[in-house]
Design a binder for these strands. Structure first.
Lengths: 227, 227
DNA sequence: GCGAGATTGTGAAAACGTTCACAAATTCGC
DNA sequence: GCGAATTTGTGAACGTTTTCACAATCTCGC
């Protein structure tokens, strides 16, 4: 019923990976991901007492192009010294500030199943400075889980605690059927970033950022490359 | 010491996400990932007894553009019927065949830590038809783990069993220090696809396909979008 | 079995991301 | 302190991916 010159008008074409706005520039999502990679590479260099690094060296470490490294950093300022490179410690501080990981971020995990429990015990988050402080489930079997003894609350307390504790980031590991319902409540309570392990496309307002980690898809698409 | 007209000659610029070759055409990695998404969406439709679907409907389900769906499918053939759409069951069969998930794939998991154990218990793989049949660790605490009671072997048996059982796909959840060493052994033993949860860039020959799942990076890059 | 309506498959255009290439800036050995 | 060597930051070129737009094709109700 649309005009003859308006094909496919029902498409919304909202590609899941969009770009962010910082100040005036638009930062591509891929750049933000690489910023994280740079941070970790710098961390390793620092541990090895390396004090300077060139874009070429950093790029080599990560299998990237040196111009890309320089361009990525140039989105946020001029951190390098021509003829020298980058000061490792300094650049790392800058990046941590840009990423917002130089402050405490309150993280909760919802859905204490196999995967949820594993993530609560997983060392990788801690090492990057993330502390999951709350866990929720529809059924509270143990009051505390994981090495860090994270307290487990019933989902009925979700909305209250999220609000009271200003939880901004949530890891979602609930069954597929429950995901959208929980997401709606999270958004209402003020959560603005979700790391979603549930293989369901979540419907949320634009200001809420969702990253999808889809393990089954990773396996399936790998299988394509087998011979 | 390179010629004056050859800048940055040490860069290799091998972007981690490259494309695959099928017959003559090059299939972008992003297309393969979406193929998996389509497969799952079709699975859901089938469960709900839906027998036909248009590119617009499928795209809407996944937040994509309808032309993209059609183009993606067009890489592999003409599966649709103008004026009608796609037959759900038929298209799904086609896609499963293209992805190679219509046959048994032998999968092993290496590194039975928190994350490894969780993945062995995780239902998501099973639902998509993947069975992890072997697990390996440097220390065998239990002879069988997970709901499916997967046998755990010592890593010294890795090379032999990989070869004997024709294991093609491996899930890697070992500590960072061990990752490259294990990867080298896997490649020698004939593994050609790795799902790598270790935050380390693995050095492997071109014919080995690696997908990286980097949970810490996902968290960090999410934090960028908080306010 | 005809015709209005729906939907595909696909060239062409637009958007986006990466790499090249080089002037400008700084270093550092002597 | 000079000058060769190094390395940044960035416009322009290039390549890839996504979206548009529409002719060709098929459906399905009457």
């Amino acid at each position: 019923m649309t005009g003859p010159k308006s094909p496919d008008s029902s498409d919304e074409a909202q590609n899941p990976e969009r770009s962010a706005v910082l100040g005036e520039k638009k930062i591509p999502a891929a750049v933000v991901k690489r910023l994280s990679l740079y941070t970790r590479a710098l961390q390793n260099l620092e541990r090895n007492k390396v004090e300077k690094v060139s874009s070429t060296a950093l790029a080599g470490e990560l299998g990237l192009n040196s111009a890309q490294v320089r361009k990525d950093l140039a989105y946020f300022g001029q951190f390098g010294v021509p003829g020298f490179g980058y000061h490792v410690g300094e650049l790392r501080q800058h990046l941590k500030h840009i990423l917002g990981t130089d402050r405490e971020i309150n993280v909760a995990l919802i859905g204490v199943g196999h995967l949820g429990k594993a993530l609560l015990s997983y060392g990788g988050f801690h090492r990057q400075g993330f502390r999951i402080m709350w866990a929720f489930d529809v059924e509270v079997r143990e009051s505390h889980v994981g090495v860090e003894r994270v307290p487990v609350y019933h989902t009925s307390e979700l909305d209250r605690i999220i609000r009271e504790e200003s939880i901004e980031l949530v890891i979602l590991t609930v069954p597929a059927e429950a995901a959208q319902g929980i997401a709606d409540r999270l958004v209402k309570a003020g959560v603005s970033a979700i790391l979603n392990f549930v293989p369901t496309r979540l419907q949320t307002p634009d200001h809420v950022k969702i990253h999808y980690v889809d393990l089954a898809i990773e396996m399936e698409s790998l299988s394509f490359y087998l011979r």
